[in-house]
Design a protein around this nucleic acid. Structure first.
Lengths: 314, 314
DNA sequence: CGGCGGGCGAAATTTTCCTTCATCGCGTTC
DNA sequence: GAACGCGATGAAGGAAAATTTCGCCCGCCG
């Protein structure tokens, strides 16, 4: 009942389902915890939280110690370390020590306070800026360059490109499509699920479909991607959940990071920043690869819009 | 000859005879090595030097590994660690990891260079991230809080809100409208100039119109704003050119910053980041002021969308 | 030349970490 | 509502790393 949708057509599922290539990072650990947390079990979450909350303290603990402190078992601690991308607890501990040192030396992402209802405007601006900056750093740190390269390669030689996104992600989809159009590629963003599927089935080998969804579970976006996948197109998922359902139909997965969200700051807000960075990277990458044709196209589109501006310039 | 200093007074001896009072320091390790070097034996010096020379590399090694690499024995490595003030090799290793992390984070070589055609992907990501972060900081610094407050006030009590944006700015306009809708305000984004003007003339005192244009000269956006302005609506301009034409019809001006742009990185890219931050600030500000109604509205919209996600959650 | 002190490393011991497996709780299905 | 199955969880045994012990060997001094 749960693998029925995995393979509906002949194409074998892409190799990488697991977040395997996660490189053990030094500083971007808090981010990793946040992205992985939803896919963790309760006890693992406790461990992850503890670790992220007090790197210095935890670095001083042995497996047994940390297990006790979190009220779990050693096995769980080790499992958590694995999930975060380390070979074992020993290496997590090393990373923890690194993080602690960074925090102590001021290069500390430490803890950013939530935005509350009665914060003055200046505070709001400061916190928001800090959060977004952090999101950018986290995203960049967690980006899988190999996946990115592969995606860029597919895009650069695509006959046609479809981008699917709904709600907040729809804007990101549009942004990407707009930019790709500007460098002479055939790209379209689809926010309407029906039209998206209709378009998706037109795709074939050599074409590219991109799904953008933070949750990784948005059916309206997964369906068209699956359709594209089944028809042989190269598929890319831009999602905050590298284990989400959407990745089952994705040849390449680009992970966006998740910032803490508060009541006033919905997830859509920080995920958007992250998604846009990823999308920008894709764009620049493609522009590089197709430079010969991209540069003139960029100029052309710029010229074409010039008269839309009032004449008085600088 | 060796226990003469051991018992000097009646107080029970401290557990450790070793040079205990040396506090295991995190960063100032190289210095410690230099200070201690003279009092070390030859093999210990080799170990100390190796460690100081390549903290990152050594942190990855086990006692045995480091012993091999320095051509000594495990015992010597442990002895060296002790001499440097750590309880054992394990802790030296932790400190080493910390040092490595510090070095790595400090070695941020300020990537201010333009993105060029032959930059590798990793470089692209780094530069892009750095640029966006810079843009955020710049924008936050240049934001006029008074104007922001005033804008928020107008929005919070608006009967109806129109947002105008074309091209890349259209996405920002949509983003703002989407979010305001979510907290129960009546907001619409208009990308079609004709419709925008048509809507603008419906506005009257107490309503708010927002124009988003980086250049400040986009006629398709200025016209509807002017129409709204003429009909008595409160008008806000979000623009990168505080002296641009658009500000003539704006009661409040919010300035976005402009990052350097290169051939591969069109202005639209950095201005978008800046605009989004401003828009987010507006949103949070409004959400704060209308908290009583905003919070339930946020939840309601979340609930309404829940079934759009595939059920499997954790 | 012989004794002596200390640096040094091999091996034993202990601690820490990892793996395996049985249990338990939870959701699912009939 | 009951039985089922699956996955999460922890206990215990086994591997690996770290630490201690102990004796060798080299160089210094008498």
């Amino acid at each position: 009942m749960k693998e029925n949708f995995a393979r509906r057509a002949g194409r074998p599922r892409p190799v990488a389902v697991a977040p395997r290539p996660a490189p053990p990072e030094p500083g971007a650990l808090a981010a990793k915890v946040r992205t992985m947390a939803p896919s963790m079990t309760r006890s693992m979450q406790r461990v992850a939280e503890t670790v992220a909350g007090d790197p210095a303290g935890c670095a001083a603990l042995t497996v047994t110690g940390l297990a006790e402190r979190t009220g779990t078992s050693e096995a769980t601690v080790v499992r958590t370390a694995r999930l975060l991308g380390y070979p074992g607890y020993r290496d997590l501990r090393l990373a923890l020590a690194g993080l602690a040192a960074q925090q102590a030396s001021g290069a500390a992402p430490a803890v950013t306070a939530d935005i509350s209802v009665d914060d003055p405007m200046s505070e709001v601006v400061a916190k928001l800026t800090a959060d977004e900056r952090q999101t950018l750093t986290d995203t960049a740190g967690a980006l899988d360059l190999a996946q990115l390269e592969a995606s860029v390669g597919a895009l650069a030689s695509a006959r046609r490109i479809d981008v699917y996104g709904i709600g907040a992600s729809s804007l990101v989809a549009q942004d990407l499509a707009q930019k790709l159009l500007r460098i002479g590629l055939v790209a379209h963003a689809h926010a309407d699920p029906h039209l998206a599927v209709t378009n998706a089935v037109q795709l074939r080998t050599g074409d590219v479909a991109i799904a953008i969804t933070h949750s990784g579970r948005t059916v309206d976006v997964i369906e068209p991607l699956q359709a594209a996948f089944d028809h042989g197109a190269t598929t890319i998922a831009v999602t905050g959940r590298p284990d989400g359902e959407v990745t089952q139909y994705a040849d390449h997965v680009l992970t966006t990071s998740t910032a803490r969200e508060s009541e006033l700051r919905p997830a859509a807000m920080s995920s958007r920043t992250s998604q846009l960075l990823v999308v920008d990277c894709l764009f620049i990458g493609v522009a590089q690869r197709t430079y010969e044709s991209a540069a003139p196209a960029l100029h052309a589109s710029y010229e074409a819009l010039a008269h839309r501006h009032s004449p008085r310039d600088r």
